[in-house]
Design a protein around this nucleic acid. Structure first.
Lengths: 203, 203, 203, 203
DNA sequence: GATGAATGAGACTTCATTCAT
DNA sequence: GATGAATGAAGTCTCATTCAT
């Protein structure tokens, strides 16, 4: 009697093999589909591309939000970590540039995440807000450092730069769009520095 | 009947009725609805807002594309004209800035048109291609002029700047997004000039 | 200009011919389908049986509730009116019996309405509450009259009798179920009178 | 292996494990779930409430019908037995009343069983027919006895009374519905007796 | 045997598009 | 021409049922 397994504690069984595989496939497919079709894209398309039934998708991710979250949270976390690292080992402007480059080149999701971030700006959904808040904070560190060094103008907030990063990366899907986005972002950072010149005699 | 009209010119029918009024209303409504809901917005919403039946919408614009075209063509034409004017009466950099500002502030359609342009970049649809081609050409005049004056770096094409304009305007829907987009574009133009400084002091 | 039709007042056009026909078909089909499958029955089944597209059903009745309401409201109103009439022209017990018979035999919807009423008892939905409230009130008149005449026991409320009416009519779908339900209801009314005997010497 | 068992009786396998416990849990859970949600209730809800996997449910009860049957058969058997007992130790009318009360108050399944019986009346399913047939037979004994004693009218069959029992119990789910159903059934039995009075004073 | 993941059918709902009036 | 009703495809979501582990 006392050995009865407690009904309230599902005994944490080892995750089934095909389940793990399906989850991975779904995340991959979702990243691709969202990248192409935006965050309104059909969940059935995701399931189809993942090669699983629609029911399987819903078992793994009961809501569209849950799927988004799973797809993007890791990316966001990596970007946040990267900001901290760059602050320590790169000069201010260079750190900023590299971080923005990373934002563009983020593996696996690319435009998908960017689209999501674009929405974050006025969407009230959980994951968007989460992403927006964390990325903003990460950027803030980079910006205030660069600003303190007089390397960039001081009247630009992290939201502005985030918006620029997303906006300049969103357009264009030709081969090579990433390199192009990086080029445009570099120009933008040049602009940040250019306007700072009059304000603080450099070094 | 119809005896008072020359029999030899039947193709030109009298184009008048409340039809003209409806067409105007539809264009207005479409601009508003697309602005708010993006280019995926429901056509029924457009008809409803215009106060006409959905059938009437279809009579005037047999496809969604046709409606887009009608909505945006005028805007595009105005932008194209504006480029020519600015070339004649403003200094190079200023002309470029003002044109970009106009692109952001374009009345009546705003984000709708921007979204459409965003799509244009890899969509093969008629109207998108049309808009993209014409705007690119207009921008080219502004850019080559500024570039010739040594005011901006020379390795940036009109597609790049168009992409920046659209991208930097697309994000953010809070009140004041237009002013913000203009600010970001100005920084971008600063960047175009900043990189040019070291390259071309000789002219 | 002054002749412009006001946009805010949809000019009350004559209802299209097939629309009326479809509405009628839908109501008929809904009554049948709800009768057979209860109020959870598939709306697609209703549309199928009515021979119209599912979209047509939704145009006419935007919610399941709206369809229910349309199906049942008229029936309820007729029953309410009938109660008033019977109060005036029939002796108390006879009035009660005839009203219950009418409840069973209600044309067009029969079990469908009864099922709905069955649900009314604890459902909070608009139309159920409406039906329940009005039928209860109608029954109350009949009961208090019979009770005042000493023809039935006084400790039975309209909810009780309504419950009996619905319950005794709900079962059985063989041919002849209506006559059977009437028979059972008459026995129930006999029971109401039998227990009254000791309480008030008749006439 | 298996050397200690006669080779001639392999069919009787040792029926024990936690399997028995699961079966019991499932029956309990099913009774509760069907009571609350009617016979359409989700089988997954049953499994969840029983704390077992959905697969386990299906192993024990390969079809929904099989589960119903297992849930209700015992109830039906108890009612059948009760009829025989009451016939022997209670006066006719009282026996009938008590049996009907028991039918209402049947533990563990309550409305679930009643709903099932309601369906039985025109459903062709195995278990419904089984229940209906047995209950009808049990009631017949009670009725013919009461009828022979002149205590109730003779023109009412067991199906009628069964229908009354189910119908009068089905409605209302407020607290206290059982007492109410019993009250209504007593009135109905009063009605059965009242109409008998004039018909059979001679016996 | 037990488990819960996978599957897909079916219901709901929204619109783009066609057509009767 | 204008209108809005009809249609059905497509997407969302929920289980019943099957099956791999």
């Amino acid at each position: 009697m006392a050995q009865d397994r407690p009904l309230t504690t599902p005994p944490a069984r080892k995750p089934r093999a095909d389940s793990v595989k399906n989850r991975e496939r779904l995340l991959l497919a979702a990243a691709e589909v969202f990248r192409a079709g935006g965050p309104e894209a059909s969940l059935e398309a995701v399931a189809r591309r993942a090669g699983v039934g629609i029911g399987t998708l819903y078992r793994h991710f009961p809501t569209r939000e849950a799927l988004f979250e799973a797809v993007y949270r890791r990316e966001v976390e990596q970007l946040v970590d990267l900001a901290a690292q760059l602050c320590e080992r790169e000069p201010p402007i260079q750190a900023l540039r590299l971080w923005l480059h990373a934002g563009v080149g983020m593996a696996a999701t690319k435009r998908g995440m960017l689209t999501a971030l674009a929405l974050a700006i006025d969407s009230s959904s959980e994951i968007y807000a989460y992403s927006f808040a964390h990325l903003t904070r990460a950027l803030e560190a980079l910006l205030s450092r660069a600003s303190a060094a007089g390397a960039i103008r001081a009247d630009v907030g992290p939201e502005d730069v985030l918006q620029a990063m997303v906006g300049l990366s969103m357009m264009g899907r030709q081969p090579g769009w990433e390199a192009n986005a990086i080029r445009l972002l570099d120009i933008f950072v040049d602009g940040l520095g250019a306007s700072a010149i009059g304000e603080m005699p450099e070094s």
